[in-house]
Computed example of a mutant assay.
Amino acid sequence: MITIIPKPSTFNSLEINPLYISNPRYSISPFFSSQIRLKFPNRRRRFQIQASSLVLPLLPFPIDQVLVPSEAKTLHLYEARYIALLEESLFRKNKLFVHFVLDPIGSSGTSPETSFAARYGCLVLIEKVEQLEIGALVSIRGVGRVKLLEFKQVQPYLTGEVTPLQDNVLHRATEISSKVLGLKEALHSLNSLEIKLKASGEALLQTQTTNSLFWAEKQLPLDCDADFIPPVAERVSFAALQPVSGASQSELLKLQREKLTAMDVTDTLVRLEKAMELARDNTAILAAKLAIQSLDMR
């Protein structure tokens, strides 16, 4: 699934193949010009680290393209400004930038224009870059949630200061560990059904869900402040928020709503319980699809 970053004149919808449909264009200029006080440092300003905050490049997306921790995405970057953002991110060995959402909010007063507010941000790691004749394919991975403190510059690309957001630990470790184990078992069962649903020649040993789960359980050797790396239980709680094989458009829209909710939750146990509900629902849907598939094959 590849997300195409739009042309500079507008913030276009992200064209995702094959399951997502283009969305309306969003004008980004009113947000930058009138809503946020901006600073304009030198073009080659490097990342800064100050007491659990980072100044990083920001890549904006529409509200229906929330990225959650542990999730993988492939971007097609081809504009000069986004190639510059990529080069700046790769310059540092941590290879990080921020994937954030622009949430359209109607401006007050008589102006018909729309203002924007940044609500959701996910620190992302660049995992792979493939050079193309035009631009590059960039594989990214969500690491953890961040809060946007201040926009720093617009040109040649947007940057901002961010601080980490992690769950409040309100429960006993044994209670959370039990929920994590249950969710992992449910996701492995879901993966087995997803593989069966695919044609045998296309079957993969690892779906998007188990790919996220595998990554969430790894020890992350990231070169950044440890506060930006959520605990394993928090990372696992996001792993269920992946599209499953054969998902319909309505199911994908529901998943986006689940992602928005998960990014707002500050209790790991609550998110684990919601993730378990989602895994069970997806398992039931896939079981029904497999039953229909078996009937069609007779």
Results as ranks from 00 to 15, higher is better:
152 K>R: 14
224 C>A: 11
106 G>L: 09
52 S>C: 10
125 L>Q: 14
284 A>G: 08
221 P>G: 06
76 H>R: 03
252 L>T: 08
258 E>Y: 09
115 S>R: 03
188 H>P: 07
55 V>Y: 04
247 A>M: 10
149 L>V: 07
58 L>F: 09
111 S>C: 04
81 R>Y: 08
75 L>W: 03
141 R>L: 11
102 L>D: 02
105 I>D: 05
53 S>H: 05
32 F>S: 08
90 L>G: 05
190 L>M: 08
114 T>K: 06
201 G>C: 05
16 I>N: 11
139 S>V: 15
214 F>Y: 15
88 E>I: 10
80 A>V: 12
173 A>Q: 15
14 L>C: 09
117 A>V: 14
278 L>P: 01
29 S>C: 11
95 K>M: 06
192 S>H: 11
190 L>Y: 02
145 R>K: 04
221 P>Q: 00
30 P>R: 00
43 R>Q: 14
202 E>Q: 09
2 I>R: 02
83 I>Q: 07
31 F>G: 07
126 I>Q: 11
119 R>V: 12
105 I>M: 05
33 S>V: 11
89 S>V: 08
18 P>E: 12
24 P>G: 06
282 N>A: 06
226 A>R: 14
172 R>K: 09
47 F>H: 13
296 D>I: 11
15 E>T: 14
137 L>V: 06
23 N>C: 15
165 L>W: 08
34 S>P: 02
198 K>H: 07
251 E>R: 09
62 P>D: 09
174 T>Y: 03
270 V>N: 12
289 K>H: 07
45 R>D: 13
269 L>A: 03
232 V>Q: 00
98 V>E: 01
283 T>I: 14
207 T>L: 08
143 V>H: 01
27 S>P: 06
281 D>V: 02
170 L>I: 05
199 A>L: 12
297 M>T: 15
85 L>Q: 03
49 I>N: 03
146 V>R: 00
76 H>F: 04
15 E>K: 10
110 T>S: 11
128 K>F: 13
231 P>K: 05
104 P>H: 02
171 H>T: 03
26 Y>K: 13
44 R>V: 03
46 R>K: 06
16 I>W: 04
38 L>G: 00
